[in-house]
Design a protein around this nucleic acid. Structure first.
Lengths: 248, 248
DNA sequence: ACAAAAGTGTTTAACCTACACCCATGC
DNA sequence: GCATGGGTGTAGGTTAAACACTTTTGT
């Protein structure tokens, strides 16, 4: 079956189940071997890559839709997921989808609500669904050409994420359950694109007082063993309530 | 003509001109006599007040729709207008609009994109359109009961605006073309809900170096005449480019 | 002249940065 | 034991808050 027939088939279900004109795009960030990664998919019939996305059930909260879409793509639950902007240009899909018949679901004009997620790279298994041919991590340094306005959406997500990172310690969401301060610092340096003072970074992070210090260390590498930390939900929530030093 | 007949009439146009399921709500802030104000409307047939809103033309950018809606309500153009969040609960209009026939435009499920605007109170003339019975400024301290989830939308806008205010000098958008530092400080104190140090406030603001200092002063009041300032677009844009000290 | 508001200057403390030092581990 | 990475301490500088002082105006 060619993809047009397939899309026509799926179109019927989509019109039945989902709200027209509204879509969701997820920018899923991961971190692996000192590189920031983004999860991209390739739709059948498309040359360019795109963001994993989906639609909103007729009786579904948009946040729930985002959670569902993310889970269907990665199996991940309870990750950091935040809405950051709605995209409502006209002609967003003009150049990439105009080869499809007009009646097809995808040819609608969509207002897309962007969410970005921070996930543990190791815990995710990218899922290729029936309307796509690939779902892979791509390094942000060597992103392939992207369809529609997905590049813009990605950039807006990155900017938003960087901004948040500057004001709230959200970075650990990209790391495994247990991590070391050097790990965390590498991640911050990668995302922010600049080196940070090692000793001060450590102090600043620990000053947030939202980490659990483990007794064990990570053995194996040469040189001194770094201390393992994990994230303390309870303390973090408490810290958020009293404000995380973002005020006059 | 009762409002149901009217709505049925308008419904047809709306279905023809606008994208279904997508709406826009504007939280318009103004500042008058040391009080922060919000522009509210009352829809025909509704007991409670609501935010001025509208819909997105089938071939219109959502930002343009927001600008158009704001202009139609206030006559204001070129004001500070920013998208801050999309609201996509289910049953948003359940309790307030369920008395209307289901076929009516307003009974759709809407995903609403929230924008907030900062306008010069003096320059605005609230406009009552044909589907509403009132359009008035209300003090944020004594807001009336609001329809649907508009209270939540307002609160999200306020929070967002406060946050921005902490990091970027956007407050002057609420003042007339020419204003004094004491004016600006009163405004900040009102919005943030706490007193600020007078001398330090002045220094901090002037340090941004985005204001034009006028030679004249405001005469009339008792005591020393304050210096008039206005906002310097050019310097502000330049400052934004080099970054407004929000970084590591 | 005086009171009150606006504008400017000065002291002080908190904070961040840079750097030095110590510790632990594998070779 | 020594090279290297990890963790802690400390001095110096920057910035902002707190307060004092001066200037200006209307009464």
């Amino acid at each position: 079956m060619d993809e047009i027939s397939l899309f026509e088939e799926r179109s019927k279900e989509f019109y039945k189940d989902y709200l027209p004109h509204v879509s969701i795009d997820c920018v899923v960030f991961g971190f692996h071997s000192n590189t920031l990664k983004v999860l991209l998919i390739r739709m059948k019939g498309q040359e360019h890559w795109g963001l994993p996305g989906g639609y909103v059930g007729k009786d579904e909260h948009i946040d729930d839709a985002a959670i569902r879409i993310l889970k269907s793509r990665t199996g991940a639950e309870k990750v950091f997921l935040e809405q950051f902007k709605a995209f409502g240009n006209t002609g967003r899909s003009e150049k990439d989808l105009s080869y499809l018949p007009e009646s097809i679901w995808f040819r609608q004009r969509f207002i897309s609500v962007g969410y970005y997620a921070l996930v543990d790279y190791e815990q995710i298994i990218p899922v290729v669904d029936d309307i796509s041919t690939a779902c892979e991590w791509k390094s942000v340094h060597e992103l392939p050409a992207m369809m529609m306005d997905h590049r813009q959406i990605y950039e807006a997500a990155l900017e938003n994420m960087r901004f948040q990172l500057n004001y709230k310690p959200i970075g650990y969401n990209l790391l495994p359950e247990e991590f070391t301060m050097p790990d965390l610092q590498k991640l911050y340096e990668t995302i922010l694109g600049k080196p940070l003072s090692r000793s001060n970074f450590q102090r600043k992070m620990l000053a947030y007082d939202i980490f659990i210090k483990h007794d064990k260390e990570r053995k194996g590498g040469a040189h001194r063993s770094p201390i393992l930390y994990s994230f303390d939900q309870v303390k973090y929530q408490a810290a958020l309530k009293t404000g995380l030093k973002e005020a006059w």
